[in-house]
Write a protein that binds this DNA or RNA. Structure first.
Lengths: 124, 124
DNA sequence: CAACTGTGCTATTACAATTAGCACAGTTAT
DNA sequence: ATAACTGTGCTAATTGTAATAGCACAGTTG
């Protein structure tokens, strides 16, 4: 379970942790009921305060993406599969694209960009 | 020059003002060398402190989108046309889409979303 | 009981966003 | 020159968020 944190980024550390966990789920690397590293383990591995890890986990639990059990650990939620995570990410992308449109971006420009991002994939 | 501010949004007021000005430029509503409302005028119109307006204008000036002259006012920059603004917005959309991809979003899902956003346009 | 797990506080530090007020400087017209 | 505009540049106070720190409590497992 490798995490890469940028301590100089403006995006909060707990958000970076949330992103990386959801990304691992979205990509199918970790599945429902898989156990996450413990708060204290992640805390020392990443040299981040346990409360910051806790904040990330609590957020994810609120979103129904993970569930935590005192004494046992934190696990990937069953109902949080790909769907929830991708939908959330798509929502963010949607607002960014809508904003670009309002700034005058053409549809064709967006499409070209999407193609370049997915370049080399076996998708339609 | 109508601005709509959401004072309860988490996005800073000065960011909202920047967005709306760049949007007007991106859509071609205001062009190079057009004069913007004065700091004090916008301040009273929007019921926002002059320093907040100033912050937005200073940011836009740093980005080369507008230029200000003491005693005269603030104006749309000549080299800041559509290009700069749209490119910035596309950059943001790109990172959001890349993130969605890393979360497991399929290219087809993105395309469908783009289509829905641009629904009803006379574009290709 | 020991050694793990997560939970829930409170306090502190640092920084960002916003408002407020004031003084200063350039421009324009009367 | 003066009035009435324009932008500029500060400093201060307030509020909220991010992050760290420390501590106590509670559940689980061997």
């Amino acid at each position: 379970m490798n995490f890469f944190l940028d301590f100089h980024s403006r995006t909060p550390i707990y958000e970076q942790i949330k992103e990386q966990i959801t990304s691992l789920i979205g990509q199918g690397v970790i599945k429902a009921d898989d156990q996450l590293p413990s708060l204290r383990q992640l805390s020392s591995e990443l040299s981040v305060n346990i409360n910051t890890i806790k904040r990330a986990f609590s957020d994810l639990e609120s979103q129904g993406i993970i569930y935590s059990v005192a004494g046992k650990g934190s696990f990937i939620s069953g109902n949080a599969h790909r769907g929830v995570i991708v939908d959330d990410a798509l929502e963010e992308a949607k607002s960014a694209i809508s904003k670009a449109k309002s700034m005058g971006a053409e549809k064709s420009e967006i499409i070209i960009m999407v193609n370049s991002i997915y370049e080399g994939d076996e998708n339609t």
